Simulated assay, not measured.
Amino acid sequence: MSPTSTRSPGGTTPIRRLAKRDLATVGPEETLQEVAEELAMDEIGVVLVRYGHDPLGVISERDLVAVIANGGHLGTQATDLMTVDLVTVSGDAGVADVARVMLDAGIRHVLVREDDEDHSDGGPVTGIVSMRDVVGFLLGDDVPA
């Protein structure tokens, strides 16, 4: 089945269809060297910093480049660099709406949460979507089933 046959007009397809479920995660005590190794090993641009099941923040390849460019130390713990103001979207959000969120926030990755009536800030983080995933989808590339 081609993606265009299942896609709603205007990018209203729920973002959960594009979300990668296998989130790369690191613990808060891991060093930036370990974060960089995780990014390189998985060939990804961002990791989620978690304590147990709770998301604490994210660290992107941009963050690591900034540390190196400013003479920072790769022995620094993840919690000292992570972005704590997490940008998340509901799994029901349309692809085009998520693209707008990413552009407005100046980010290349967004966390996807499932709606949960028990949590005012949404349910648990269930995936991640990159700008590449969104643009590819909108241009007609295949998406995960």
Rank of each mutant, 00 (worst) to 15 (best):
55 P>G: 06
138 L>C: 09
113 R>C: 12
5 S>A: 14
141 D>F: 13
10 G>E: 09
38 E>G: 00
56 L>R: 13
107 I>W: 03
62 R>W: 04
72 G>N: 04
65 V>M: 10
20 K>T: 13
50 R>G: 01
39 L>Q: 00
64 L>R: 00
79 T>P: 01
128 I>L: 12
46 V>N: 06
69 A>T: 08
124 P>T: 10
83 T>D: 01
43 E>G: 08
122 G>R: 06
138 L>S: 09
53 H>N: 15
63 D>K: 01
49 V>S: 03
132 R>H: 12
87 V>Y: 03
3 P>F: 06
98 V>S: 05
30 E>F: 06
37 E>I: 08
81 L>W: 03
27 G>L: 11
64 L>D: 00
65 V>C: 05
129 V>M: 05
46 V>A: 11
86 L>M: 10
14 P>C: 09
2 S>L: 13
47 V>W: 00
36 A>M: 04
67 V>I: 14
58 V>C: 01
100 R>F: 09
95 V>Q: 04
66 A>G: 04
36 A>G: 05
84 V>T: 15
70 N>T: 14
50 R>E: 12
9 P>F: 12
87 V>R: 08
55 P>E: 04
6 T>Y: 14
23 L>F: 03
133 D>L: 02
88 T>E: 03
98 V>F: 05
36 A>K: 01
85 D>A: 13
105 A>N: 14
114 E>R: 13
100 R>H: 12
32 L>P: 03
63 D>V: 08
108 R>W: 04
69 A>D: 13
24 A>E: 11
57 G>E: 03
88 T>K: 07
145 A>S: 14
16 R>A: 13
82 M>V: 06
19 A>V: 02
97 D>W: 04
2 S>R: 14
